[in-house]
């Protein structure tokens, strides 16, 4: 049987391997994912933070010129796309030992929480980090309620 090629009788590696595969598969949900989601660790890496009135997306996109980045919002999905090219260099011969860095075109979609105003978005690029700040609509922000003295 083909399964015999990945079933090990060794109890430690058998269980450990099963556990690692379970973690890799996002605890069994790996077969079902959001249509536009990217696997964890895809380029560019990103973090999303939230304050009371804004949603902030930090895109770690080193070595990319502003003109090579494209940011757009549609409904509550933020799309970031662009390309990173190999820096053209003097035409000396190169022998490569490691090529771990991403090269080429990329695209990532971020589903934003409901209530973000697509008209009020700021984006800035500094030290290879793109910060996209999206303002929440007033009605979705927490509101302080004054307590009246009776």
């Amino acid at each position: 049987m083909l399964q015999d090629l990945w079933r090990f009788n060794d109890p430690l590696f058998g269980d450990l391997g099963r556990l690692l595969r379970l973690i890799d598969s996002d605890w069994g949900n790996g077969a079902r994912a959001d249509l536009r989601s990217a696997p964890r660790g895809s380029f560019p890496l990103l973090n999303v933070g939230e304050t009371e009135d804004t949603v902030n997306v930090y895109v770690f996109a080193p070595g990319i010129e502003q003109s090579d980045l494209d940011v757009s919002v549609q409904d509550n999905v933020l799309m970031i796309s662009g390309k990173r090219d190999e820096v053209a260099d003097e035409d000396k011969e190169r022998s490569w030992y490691r090529r771990e860095r991403f090269h080429g075109e990329f695209q990532r979609a971020v589903t934003l929480p409901e209530g973000v105003d697509p008209e009020q978005v700021n984006a800035s690029l500094k030290d290879g980090v793109l910060t996209v700040s999206l303002r929440k609509r007033a009605e979705t922000q927490p509101r302080r309620i004054e307590i009246q003295a009776a």
């Binding site: 996109a61 080193p62 022998s95 030992y97 490691r98 290879g128």
Partner: peptide
């Protein structure tokens, strides 16, 4: 950080992605 390492006639060059570092 992910790196590219290459060698030329006179030097070895390392390139590393370190976004957010100044």
């Amino acid at each position: 950080p992910p790196v590219d390492v290459f060698e030329q006639d006179d030097a070895v060059t390392i390139r590393a992605d370190m976004p957010g570092v100044n």
